[in-house]
Design a protein around this nucleic acid. Structure first.
Lengths: 161, 161
DNA sequence: GCAGTTTGGTTGACATGTCATCGATCGGCT
DNA sequence: AGCCGATCGATGACATGTCAACCAAACTGC
């Protein structure tokens, strides 16, 4: 079929809308999170991922992979969070090179204090603006894009190009 | 007692998926854009917005508002792009305080060289992964969230909460 | 066991973004 | 005209993210 250069009106609307939504949502969620809980979004994401593990701890590289961050970025960020007492570092028992990021009680308390408000904000600004069908569509659409970008084969509707 | 704020499984899937898609899409589009055109996404956005104006120029504040950037951020960024010869600054004719960001021929050439590849990447990684219905849904859904965040009254389906 | 390579993480230099502040206009008001 | 508060944009200090170089421990093959 025709080699696609540009986006048509509908596609352009979706692309521009998506980016504008992203930006506005980021700004608002970050603003509320900082105001209500004193955490940046990256802070919250780190704490949240850690708190979801049974032992409240993760290898640095494992955490970096989950968050799609570089090890360097995470290492720097953990250093800063460590200064604030939200996490600590431990040497990995099974790998002398490795370090393990551990949630402190203060860190745990911080996420737990932040989580309800943050979830409510996500709901208020995004989820509650969407119909159930749109929520479902966003979920499946995202997953399909993720699969494509991570090299997993997924069908869109009929054929892959 | 479960709080009204939490996300159910479907909503959580949409939210996590959205964020992961965002991140992966950013990484890939930025990577390709840098590799193919030597531009960062912020660079491209600035050049793109400028090139869409009839006179290839915009007041700094006008550009900042369109991009949802702070004036400070844009001022810094324009300085850097100016160093690279992509844009210039002029004093505003109608307002002695103001400055006008102007696309240089080199800047114009840079966007024009970058645009087809970037559009193709957006298509390849996002648009072409979506059904037409999903593209449409993303457009309307985004617009509704934008309207809400910018204080515009919009109905979701029938009533506002 | 042990050299060579790979991997996990840290570090420092640098690029980018944020925040508060500042000087210079502009605009409204008298 | 002359003042006052508001706005525009620049700037510097600082926070954050990126990139490449590095060290130490782990793997590999002999």
């Amino acid at each position: 079929m025709d080699e696609p250069g540009w986006l048509d009106a509908q596609e352009d609307r979706a692309w521009r809308g998506y980016r504008r939504m992203r930006r506005l949502l980021d700004l608002e969620l970050a603003r509320e999170l900082m105001q209500d809980a004193g955490l940046s979004e990256p802070d919250y994401d780190v704490l949240s991922d850690l708190s979801e593990t049974p032992e409240q701890r993760l290898r640095l590289s494992e955490l970096a992979d989950r968050m799609l961050w570089s090890r360097s970025r995470l290492s720097h960020h953990i250093s800063r969070m460590q200064q604030r007492g939200l996490v600590t570092r431990e040497v990995c028992a099974t790998d002398g090179r490795g370090s393990v990021v551990v949630l402190t009680p203060a860190g745990r308390q911080a996420v737990e204090a932040a989580a309800p408000g943050h979830a409510a904000a996500v709901r208020r600004h995004l989820i509650d603006r969407l119909t159930p069908a749109e929520v479902a569509a966003l979920g499946t659409l995202s997953q399909r894009v993720i699969d494509h970008l991570t090299g997993r084969p997924t069908a869109r509707s009929e054929a892959e190009d």
